[in-house]
């Protein structure tokens, strides 16, 4: 059986809200190492990989690995019923066809439970190799969201190029062109305003802006986002889930016709 008690239950809602527009149904895999989710978006252009470590939970018991298939829209509906400070406990029996969510208020004066129906989902699991990235930029998550939003109003695709001068985001459309350059800034007073660029080799890749914009729905999860790029490979857009795990998005680049 599965029993998992998460004090910061709102983290679950933030994760589901970040991915539910890209993926409609997904398996949440549970094992002794924790919770993980891997799913491609419906167009098979991007891949979501989430992991919440078992030690992130105040109490975690998983007797044997299980895959819980669910509609993320329905899961979002359930999690929306939790208070923002509620403690969330998940319970499921081996081979059961439901999972129960219990929400407890911090003052322990309100307890509710919701049973969600599970479904069988066939999904391919992709192996993601460890990659030595040419360029890694860690920037404020809000800044990333703003760049995606601003550039989306001008064009559909963005060229992200990392050089010693910084990381430049370029788009063009009917209106004209737009460039935003982000430079390293490790002297900002507040740590959440800092930008760190680790460049091993210059790299430039082209991406569909609508996916990069969708990834920014994870902004409430973390102060920073990390973009990792290597030539001719998918970009990895990573949000840390505090010290509990991560939510990673991989997006395939566009190539010349």
């Amino acid at each position: 059986m599965l029993e998992a008690r998460l004090v910061q239950g709102s983290m679950l809602r933030k994760v589901v809200d970040a991915v539910k527009d890209l993926v409609s149904d997904a398996n949440i895999d549970v094992s002794s190492s924790g919770f993980s989710l891997q799913a491609m978006d419906t167009s098979h252009v991007s891949l979501i990989a989430m992991h919440l470590r078992a030690d992130a939970f105040e109490h975690f018991r998983c007797d044997r690995p299980m895959s819980m298939g669910m509609s993320l829209a329905n899961l979002a509906k359930v999690l929306k019923c939790a208070g923002s400070d509620d403690i969330v406990t998940l319970k499921a029996n081996d081979d059961g066809d439901t999972v129960t969510f219990m929400f407890e208020s911090p003052k322990e004066d309100r307890v509710s439970d919701f049973e969600l129906k599970l479904m069988d989902i066939d999904s391919e699991h992709l192996g993601i190799p460890d990659t030595d990235y040419c360029a890694t930029v860690t920037m404020p998550a809000g800044e990333y969201a703003r760049i995606c939003k601003d550039l989306s109003s001008i064009g559909d695709t963005v060229v992200i190029s990392a050089t010693k001068d910084g990381v430049k985001f370029t788009t063009s459309g009917d209106v004209g062109t737009a460039n935003v350059t982000v430079r390293q800034n490790t002297t900002a007073d507040k740590k959440e305003d800092q930008t760190i660029i680790d460049l091993k080799e210059p790299v430039a890749l082209t991406f569909a802006l609508r996916y990069l914009t969708s990834f920014a729905k994870a902004t409430p999860l973390a102060t920073h986002v990390t973009l990792s790029m290597t030539r001719e490979l998918p970009v990895m857009v990573e949000y840390a889930i505090q010290d509990m795990g991560h939510l990673r998005f991989y997006l395939a680049p566009k190539i010349e016709d």
């Binding site: 891949l47 391919e124 699991h125 992709l126 190799p129 998918p234 991989y250 566009k254 016709d257």
Partner: peptide, 14 residues
Amino acid sequence: GGKQRSIASFFAVQ
């Protein structure tokens, strides 16, 4: 804008 590649073409199915 270039041709969009599938993400599955980069990562092998396990």
